[in-house]
């Protein structure tokens, strides 16, 4: 038993304390969170835009005659199909080695790749939310003279976002965990930190179990925040 603890504490010191290795993990957490949060913001903007375009197209027979809207809607269709139909890692590799081949700004590339990827998923989530808002809400908004986009902005989207918040939280958690594949473009996120340390110490247990726990804690933290937001937004329910 004593030997086990001695071994354990030796491994622990080697993997976390020696040569200030904990700093590497900390920096990794920073990168992971930075990519996750920025990608989510980009994803939200893209997702909202696409879902509104698609709903505008699907719900308004008169707007459908507008050629610009039809092109835009077609583009959105292709975008979601391609993004959802190809692996995230392949998208990341294309982004880094093909589209931004001349750039070494890995964080920017990772943020863009993940933002564009989650935008496709978020757009479908938000679209579902918009469709689930009672038709009468749109009619009431239009009946006082608001145009389609005003009604969306003030009435439909706030209600839609509230109802899809659990799904958005899910997307956020998935995003956080998926960012671990940024290691393939050499970005030093949390996973890369563990891999680097394993390469130095030849210890696999401590770094990998360690980051698994860290990921778990991060996810728990995010879930907690999402729950708080959800509860705060529930004021208009009885």
């Amino acid at each position: 038993m004593k030997e086990f603890f001695a071994e354990f504490s030796k491994d622990f010191t080697q993997s976390f304390i020696e040569a200030d290795r904990w700093k590497l993990y900390l920096k990794g957490i920073g990168v992971t969170l930075e990519v996750t949060v920025l990608a989510l913001l980009i994803g939200l903007v893209i997702g909202l835009f696409i879902s509104v375009v698609r709903c505008l197209h699907d719900q308004n027979p008169s707007a459908r005659r507008n050629p610009l809207l039809r092109i835009l809607n077609g583009f959105c269709h292709i975008y979601t199909t391609v993004i959802r139909g190809t692996p995230m890692m392949v998208q990341l590799l294309i982004m880094y080695f093909v589209i931004f081949a001349s750039s070494r700004n890995q964080i920017m590339v990772a943020v863009l790749a993940f933002g564009i990827n989650s935008g496709a998923y978020i757009s479908e989530i938000v679209r579902g939310g918009i469709m689930s808002v009672d038709r009468g809400q749109m009619e009431a908004g239009r009946s006082i003279g608001l145009n389609y986009l005003q009604t969306m902005r003030y009435i439909i989207i706030p209600q839609a976002l509230k109802s899809v918040l659990p799904s958005l939280g899910n997307e956020l958690i998935t995003l956080l965990k998926e960012t671990s594949i940024v290691t393939v473009i050499g970005l030093r996120d949390l996973t890369k930190a563990a891999m680097l340390i394993q390469g130095k110490t030849y210890q696999a247990f401590m770094p990998f179990i360690g980051i698994a726990l860290i990921y778990l804690l991060l996810v728990l933290g995010l879930s907690f925040i999402m729950n708080r937001i959800e509860r705060r937004l529930r004021v208009d329910e009885r």
């Binding site: 009672d134 009468g136 809400q137 009619e139 009431a140 908004g141 009946s143 006082i144 003030y154 009435i155 706030p158 209600q159 509230k162 208009d236």
Partner: peptide, 12 residues
């Protein structure tokens, strides 16, 4: 002005 059967007040 329009008044609907199902009120349609803005729930948010």
């Amino acid at each position: 002005g329009m008044v609907f059967q199902h009120f349609n007040l803005f729930n948010n």
